[in-house]
Design a protein around this nucleic acid. Structure first.
Length: 562
RNA sequence: UGGGGCGUCGUCAAGCGGUAAGACACAGGAUUUUGAUUCCUGCAUUCGGAGGUUCGAAUCCUCCCGCCCCAGCCA
């Protein structure tokens, strides 16, 4: 079955070595540190599974910590949605949620400590000047004129910054490291900036807020984190992370380890790009089922188990990667194949009249809820003279390998009878509107006593035993594997058929009582779930989570069918 | 062209000096009242390239090539 933890990887190897060396007394503590400025997506899921998974594997713990140091773009609604998502994924952060803002007092003290040690100073250069003084990738930076400001003056200025005496941008607190460092992060990085704005959690207590680099390492240390896992772009920050923890009197010195973020093909993963899709109305909100946001895939019908398993399977390394969505699709199929009860639904109905079935007569037939799992029981489905089959399951002049219905052909209706098509009715435009068929009473349940075989089995629904429904068929959001490649505007690559809205579907009557999010396999079509937002009692809406593996589609696409 | 990383099958990914795991994908075949599931079988003489060390290298050394990241008072 399912493995609940990330398999062997370089991070676990490092931790195993650290434990062997007796570092941290064998204790392992990680953290998942989202900034509450957007919704979580699959990339975060990887990090969540990694951090919580590693902690679990080593009998440690993992904190959920909000990195809320920039109140100008962080909001409570994101905090709420992130908490919900992490919970949904199935992880437990213990007794309390952590917030970097809870450490603002201590952070401030550590800043003062740095100033007193002569390792930080208040700089009055403005943004442009700081950038100019910083130098470039190939040219060293120049020292700020304020770099040697006396310690008392720094202390005084920093205190007044905190009291709100200055405008935004008037001063910043900077670490005094090395302006000629080849690592730009070490060129006297800004530690604190003035932002006369209130914070979602600390209100108006502060008007100076600590920067990421200063906050993160110290927060890690205060929480007793042993291994601080982050993405590759922070590799250049590690020297600063270590410098800070060495200079300040924190209780411990966590080890930062960087891993590659996940990319999925046929989609985009960055908050900024996702936001564009939402804002331009290309998708319908952050929980649009086509998006790789956790809210989106949840609504699409993905289960936490499948997501966790997926994160497991893809592993973790330091190589840039672009995972094939097929792996994700396989994960959800694997999970739903086992869990989802089967049902019949006709997405694109074609009317079928059984001419030798008495008008008005209905019959109850028994159907398995899961062919491989008898424990899931049976249900009864209604057969009658008036049926619907999938329009795609009939061809007037079928190729040899087409096992479905055609004029004069006999097929089985699942759990019902063998039927033979005797006549095709068309409208004035030549469009097929109805099929006239006969059924064989001896084949009740789907077996022929004379042993004759039939190549195809079709799903169906009867007029009396079904209700109308809406169905949303989703496909990949983009037509190219890497939507961001070779274009200035990735939205040009949006797949126009990524959502097909079907209004005239018919589903088994029992499905009318489905619960929001409840998953089913519509036989021969795929896995579907009741939409949690747009479904109404009288007209259920089902989202297609993923299609079934379809060998026929492959064969017919190859063109060897005609 | 400064610094930091990365390069093992189509896509991920194990491997840590002893002679290339696994997953997905793909290709065959068996079973099948879902062309589903399940089940077999096949799928890197080779690890970015070239040298070198060694009885032996994807693993060690050297050089080269390619790709990614960094110049926010964002994280």
């Amino acid at each position: 079955m399912e493995e609940e933890s990330i398999k062997g990887n370089f991070i676990k190897n490092i931790i195993t070595e650290d434990i062997a060396k007796g570092i941290n007394g064998g204790r392992v503590m990680t953290r998942f540190p989202p900034e509450p400025n957007g919704y979580l997506h699959m990339g975060h899921a990887k990090s969540i599974c990694l951090n919580f998974g590693v902690a679990k594997d080593f009998n440690g713990r993992c904190n959920l910590r909000f990195d809320d140091t920039n109140p100008s773009r962080e909001y409570q609604k994101y905090i709420d949605s992130i908490i919900f998502d992490v919970q949904w994924l199935g992880f437990d952060w213990g007794e309390k949620i952590c917030y970097a803002s809870d450490y603002f007092d201590q952070l401030h003290e550590y800043a003062v400590e740095l100033i007193k040690k002569g390792r930080a100073y208040v700089c009055s250069l403005d943004g442009d000047q700081i950038r100019e003084y910083r130098g470039t990738l190939t040219k060293p930076g120049r020292e700020s004129p304020d770099r040697d400001r006396p310690m008392e003056e720094n202390l005084d200025l920093f205190e007044r910054m905190g009291k709100g005496e200055f405008q935004d941008g008037a001063y910043v607190l900077r670490a005094k490291i090395e302006m000629a460092s080849p690592n730009i992060n070490m060129r006297d990085p800004v530690l604190y900036r003035i932002k006369n704005i209130s914070h979602p959690r600390t209100g108006s207590k502060w008007c100076i807020y600590p920067m990421y680099d200063f906050t993160h390492g110290i927060s890690d240390a205060l929480e007793g984190i042993t291994h601080s896992l982050c993405t590759l772009e922070f590799q250049d920050h590690r020297p600063l992370y270590d410098w800070l923890l060495d200079e300040v009197s924190v209780p411990c010195h966590p080890r930062q380890i960087e891993f590659a973020r996940m990319n999925l093909n046929y989609t985009v993963m960055s908050k900024r790009k996702l936001q564009q899709l939402v804002e331009k109305g290309i998708v319908d909100g952050w929980d649009d089922p086509r998006l790789p946001t956790l809210a989106g895939i949840r609504r699409r019908g993905y289960t936490p188990e499948a997501v966790r398993n997926f994160c497991n399977i893809i592993g973790v390394g330091k190589k840039e990667n672009r995972i094939d969505v097929g792996i994700l699709e396989n994960a959800i199929r694997e999970d739903l194949n086992e869990k989802a009860p089967r049902a019949m639904a006709v997405v694109n109905p074609l009317k079928v009249t059984i001419e030798n079935w008495e008008d008005g007569r209905t019959e109850s037939l028994e159907a398995l809820n899961h062919p491989q799992n008898p424990d899931m029981g049976t249900r009864s489905i209604l057969f009658s003279r008036n049926l619907y089959i999938e329009r795609e399951d009939f061809m007037e002049s079928p190729p040899k390998k087409f096992f479905r219905l055609g004029p004069g052909r006999e097929v089985r209706l699942r759990y019902a009878y063998f039927i033979t098509c005797t006549r095709v009715i068309k409208d004035e435009n030549g469009v097929i509107t109805e099929l006239i068929c006969t059924f064989d009473p001896a084949t009740r349940g789907g077996d022929a006593p004379d042993g004759r075989k039939v190549k195809g089995t079709l799903h169906w629904v009867s007029e009396e035993g079904s209700v109308p429904a809406k169905v949303h068929l989703y496909d990949r959001l983009f037509t190219t594997e890497d939507p961001e490649a070779d274009t200035h505007d990735f939205t040009q690559n949006v797949n126009p058929d990524s959502l097909i809205k079907i209004t005239g579907a018919r589903v088994e009557k029992g499905l009318a009582d489905a619960l929001p999010g409840e998953a089913f396999q519509f036989e021969r079509l795929g896995y579907f779930c009741l939409d949690s937002k747009l479904s109404s009692p009288g007209l259920p809406l089902f989202n297609r989570t993923v299609t079934l593996r379809d060998t026929w589609a492959k064969v017919s696409k190859k063109g060897n069918t005609v």
